[in-house]
Every structure is written in structure tokens, then in C-alpha cells.
Design a protein around this nucleic acid. Structure first.
Length: 557
RNA sequence: GUCCCCGUAGCUCAGUUGGAUAGAGCAUUUGCCUUCUAAGCAAAGGGUCGCACGUUCGAAUCGUGCCGGGGACGCCA
């Protein structure tokens, strides 16, 4: 498609210039880019500008000379019919315009490939693991997790689409201090429910959901009094709590359209034995030392700003230890690349994790830690205060219930992951032009409406040779559809699904402009059938793009 | 103090590998529905791209130093 054509053209330029200028000087790298300005053609080449200094001639005169050479080669090449014209523009760009045949070919391809359009083998089957959400099973998912969930899910879909073998993974922190506290919190609330007066510590989980769990615990175990409760041990509360909350988390994610391939339990993967083995291999390389009665990991030698404790003086491991074991496990499973999606509070953790991977003998370049910035919820322009400590938080479930899955997912993806996101609940559920979700959905609904009409008139979409589609709005729409692949590769280089959101907004813009100016179903049957094909292609791209984001599209609005 | 992110129109933000006259949406003003959905389209106004220096034929983009806003820096997870 267009990306393909671009590389072919690059090769052709290289070939023609190298052939003619052989030995006279070192040719700089050839770059083609898509100009913003339409009058600058479809591809723009800056090679003359690059050569100006070396050749000590004006870029424009070099461009003229090069243009001649390129045109000669082009004449003999298979690309001859793809390029309409070559023009020189100050300060020395060589601009190429594509022929109508090229646009016609693009359209034919999209219609032929249908939902396969845009798929590629860029990933070459490389195994990528994306670990995300991984929220502690000590409370329900909140909006903080929601953004990470959608980002990981959409990014996974996109990487899969372009040929990576993707595994989405959730790491369950079902061990450690926080689980102990969860168990104790449940125990205390259970006592309270049985009429005891309790002193509920501040560092315990304050949320009212603990009371629900406690009640369910009593009910399931048929405990009627404190004596019955006392027969239960710590583990009983912990296990019950973890499993209860994990079920809730799974439910919430499912309703949110977020699918995981693998659920990994910390208790299973980061066993005492595995931790010891992992630390041993690091120790062998000299990264471990003892000081002040604790065991330290010399991360400073691997880019961290201070060394980290790995085993506390009381003999307990810090959280870093099981994580090292876990990451060893990840790489041992054969992933070429491992992506971790974390919240901004973890950013100091990146260098530690990279150090660990490096110390384990893997290339830390194969570990990408993505920090997804927080989302602040707004209602009528006012931020909602949140504090997990006090148990005041907006759960993912509440957001889904209030604004719906489509709007919620779209809103969380609406900004680059690296920037803070403002999420206005009123705006998200508002059915008005201010809501950007509808801009895209409306385009799709309009296309459906056209097809309903076409069906009544028994009009069929043309399959190839689109000679009537020559209006700027039609060409723009075709070009935008062709750059679906560009959008996908931007998502890959940025590791951010935002590129797809941005692309679909643009595509919708192109469509609405076209729709407003021209009628698809008109008097001329040939033209109508070609335009019908054009919007059919647009429907394919909208459907494909939105599917990757996990946002559905209504047939009608 | 160290590290991360941000600073672009009144507001919210785009602007991939440096490119030609810096773009959208909202808000303001004004046009377009007897014709496939007006949740749309067209037009106008609105900018020292935080500041300075540097690299380059060329800088919103790269580098350095400042200024301003947010966040992270525990033998917590």
C-alpha cells in the first residue's frame, strides 16, 4: 500500500542518483515524507537540501538536476503509472504527486482485504508480554486502574494486529503485608458485625466493601457468634478476601471488555525457592552485599541512583525480591520483549526493575516500563476528590455504570498515556456534539444509513477502477484510509494506543467533509456505485480501528 | 536536593523519524437542513510554540542552562 509505495519510491530515487553520481560524493540518506501542505504533493524528498553543502550549489539547482535523473529512471520503472508528477519547490524540495490509478488501487485493496486491511507482519511473530493492571486484590478496581486496563488492552490488540504474538498478563499480588492487613481488616469487620466493639486501625482498609466481605465470610462459613469466628485462622480470612476480591476484579475487567490471557499468582511464581534462585544468580555476578544486617542489591552499578534493600534486617524480603523472581520467570518463558504498564507512583521503580533484568543476564532494552499518568474525574467541571486510604474512591464499576463502556474506554484513550487526563463524567455521558466519541460513531452511523438507502434502490458498490473519484475530499478520504498503517506503526513506536484514537478522529473528519459536500446516491449510477465503494471502505477502516480500541459502533444514532 | 512528566490560541489538547504558511475541538461571531442522519459542514477572529543560548541549509521538535506547574523519591507494596 502507501507505505510500500513509499519505500519503492525511496529505492528508486536512491538507485537513480547513485547510478548517475557514482563515486563523485557520498550521498546522504534519502528521506521521503508526507507534506502537510497539499500543494506540496503526496511525497516530499529533501535530498537536494542535504546535498547543498557538499556540492556547494543552490538546493534548487541540485533539485532540478536530480529531478531529471529520477524522471529518467521512473520512466523505465513499474512505478511509472503510480506517479503523476514531480515538482521542485523552494527551498529545494522534490515533490511527488500520486496518480489517480494509485488511489484507485488503494481503494480496491481495502475492499478486497476488508477486515484484514492494515494487518501486517511487522512483529514477525515476536513474543511480547504485556503485564498490566496487576492491582492488589485488596480492594475493587478504581479509575486509576481503569486507564491502565484500557491502555494495555488496546495496545495488546494493536500489537497483535501487526504481527506480534501477544500475551496479556495480570500479576496477582496475593502475598505479603497488604494481604495480611486485608485478612485482619475482614476479621475485625466480622467481629463488628457480630456485635463486638472494635478498634479499627488507621492503616487497615477503610472501605465499606470490607464489611460486605466480612458479612459474606460469616454467611458462607455459617458463623453466628464470636466463638465461631475465633476458630478461623489468619489464612482463612486472607484467602477468602483475596479470592472474593479477585472475582470482583475479574468481573469488572470483563464488563470493561478487558481480556487477559494469563493470570499469574505471586504465591506460585515467586516462591521462596524461586526467589533464592533468582537472587543467587544475581549474587554470582557480584550485585549482592550485606550491610546493617540487611541484604542489598547493588543497583547503582546498573543505572539506579541508590542501592536497594532486598532482604530486610528482620529477614523478610522487600517487594523487590519476588519481583526479580517474577521477571526472571517472564524472560525464561521466552518473551522477546516484556512490557510493564504502571502508574506514575511507580516511576522510581523503573531503574530498579531494569537493573534487575540486566543483573539476571537479560538485555534491559527488552523491558519497556510504561508509565500511564493518572486520570482525574470531573463532574460539572469540578474534580472529584479521591483517597484510597480513607476508602473514598470511584470504582471502575461506577464509571462503567454511569457512562457506559464505549465512552469510558474512549475517554481513557483520548490522551497520550504520558500526560495527565481529565475525565469529565458529565461530558462522557452527554449525547451532544461536545462529546468526541460521537464524532466517530456518527460517521459510522451515517455510512450505515447510506447503505440502507442503497439497498432500497438496489445499488451495489463498485469493486475496482475508480475513475470518477477525483474530488479533493474523495482523494483525502482515500489517502487517510491508506495511512491506517501509519497510525498502527506510530502506536508501535510510541507504545501508546492514542495514535489510533487520533487517527480515527482525523478519518471521521475526512468522512464528514466528504459527506457534507457530495451525495453518495445520486443520478449517475457509475459515480454512485464508486462513491458507495468509497464509504464501504471507510466503514471497514472505522470498524477495524474501533475494534482495536475495544469501542463498539452503533448502526444507528 | 535527585529523578520523571508537562509548558503551543481565552480553555482542553494535536503536531512519529528536525522541513515549506504551527493545527483541531470547545468558547465567541456568521452562514448551510423540501435532497443518503445538522451528534455534521463552511467561514471569521484569536499565537514572541515558557525564556535564553547553542547545533543545523532549516528548530514547537535536538542539546545545555534557567523560569513556572504537577508527580515520585521508605529496610511500604
Amino acid at each position: 500500500m502507501l507505505a510500500n509505495l513509499k519505500t519503492q519510491l525511496e529505492d528508486l530515487i536512491k538507485k537513480s542518483l547513485r547510478g548517475a553520481l557514482e563515486g563523485s560524493f557520498e550521498l546522504p540518506s534519502i528521506e521521503l515524507e508526507k507534506p502537510k501542505e497539499k500543494s506540496h504533493g503526496d511525497f516530499s524528498c529533501n535530498v537536494a537540501l542535504r546535498c547543498a553543502k557538499i556540492l556547494k550549489k543552490s538546493p534548487v539547482s541540485i533539485a532540478e538536476e536530480f529531478k531529471g535523473l529520477i524522471a529518467l529512471t521512473l520512466e523505465k520503472s513499474s512505478l511509472k503509472h503510480k506517479i503523476k508528477s514531480i515538482e521542485i519547490k523552494a527551498p529545494g524540495f522534490i515533490n511527488f504527486s500520486l496518480s489517480n490509478e494509485t488511489f484507485s488501487d488503494i481503494l480496491t485493496d481495502i475492499l478486497r482485504l476488508s477486515i484484514q486491511f492494515g494487518k501486517s507482519d511487522i512483529g514477525k511473530g515476536q513474543k511480547i508480554q504485556i503485564e498490566f493492571v496487576s492491582a492488589n486484590p485488596t480492594g475493587p478496581l478504581t479509575v486509576a486502574h481503569a486507564r491502565q486496563a484500557v491502555v494495555g488492552d488496546a495496545l495488546g490488540n494493536i500489537l497483535k494486529f501487526i504481527g506480534f504474538e501477544v500475551k496479556k498478563e495480570y500479576y496477582i499480588n496475593d502475598e505479603g503485608n497488604q494481604v495480611k492487613i486485608l485478612g485482619q481488616s475482614i476479621n475485625l469487620r466480622a467481629q463488628e458485625a457480630l456485635g463486638e466493639t472494635i478498634d479499627f486501625p488507621e492503616d487497615h482498609y477503610q472501605g465499606s466493601y470490607i464489611k460486605d466481605i466480612a458479612n459474606e465470610f460469616l454467611e458462607k462459613n455459617q458463623i453466628k457468634n464470636v466463638q465461631g469466628l475465633e476458630k478461623k485462622n489468619e489464612k482463612d480470612f486472607e484467602e477468602f478476601g483475596v479470592s472474593y476480591l479477585l472475582d470482583k476484579i475479574k468481573d469488572d475487567l470483563k464488563s470493561f471488555g478487558v481480556q487477559f490471557d494469563v493470570w499469574t499468582s505471586q504465591a506460585k511464581v515467586a516462591t521462596q525457592k524461586n526467589i533464592e534462585k533468582a537472587l543467587e544468580s544475581i549474587d554470582k555476578k557480584g550485585y549482592i552485599y550485606d550491610q546493617d544486617g540487611a541484604t542489598w542489591f547493588r543497583t547503582t552499578e546498573l543505572g539506579d541512583d541508590k542501592d536497594r534493600v532486598i532482604k530486610k534486617s528482620d529477614g523478610q524480603y522487600t517487594y523487590l525480591a519476588p519481583d526479580i523472581a517474577y521477571h526472571k520467570d517472564k524472560f525464561e518463558r521466552g518473551f522477546n520483549r516484556v512490557i510493564n504498564i504502571l502508574g506514575p507512583d511507580h516511576h522510581g521503580y523503573i531503574s530498579r526493575l531494569k537493573a534487575a533484568v540486566e543483573a539476571l543476564g537479560y538485555d534491559s532494552k527488552n523491558l519497556d516500563v510504561l508509565i500511564v499518568q493518572l486520570a482525574t474525574l470531573y463532574r460539572e467541571g469540578k474534580p472529584l476528590s479521591m483517597s484510597t486510604r480513607k476508602g473514598e474512591f470511584i470504582s471502575l464499576r461506577e464509571v462503567i455504570d454511569e457512562v457506559g463502556v464505549d465512552a469510558a474506554r474512549f475517554f481513557f484513550l483520548m490522551r497520550h498515556i504520558k500526560v495527565h487526563l481529565d475525565f469529565d463524567l458529565e461530558l462522557a455521558k452527554e449525547q451532544s456534539s461536545e462529546n468526541p466519541v460521537y464524532y466517530i460513531q456518527y460517521a459510522h452511523a451515517r455510512i450505515n444509513s447510506i447503505f440502507a438507502n442503497a439497498k432500497e434502490q438496489n445499488l451495489k458498490a463498485s469493486k475496482k477502477e475508480f475513475s470518477f473519484l477525483q474530488a479533493p475530499e474523495e482523494i483525502d478520504l482515500i489517502q487517510k484510509m491508506a495511512s491506517f498503517e501509519d497510525a498502527l506503526s506510530i502506536c508501535l513506536t510510541q507504545l501508546d494506543p492514542f495514535g489510533m484514537v487520533s487517527y480515527l478522529m482525523d478519518l471521521a473528519g475526512c468522512f464528514h467533509k466528504f459527506y457534507d459536500k457530495y451525495k453518495v446516491i445520486g443520478d449517475d449510477p457509475k459515480l454512485s456505485s464508486e462513491r458507495l465503494a468509497l464509504v464501504e471502505a471507510a466503514r471497514i477502516v472505522f470498524a477495524s480501528g474501533l475494534k482495536l480500541l475495544g469501542v463498539s459502533v452503533p448502526e444507528k444514532m
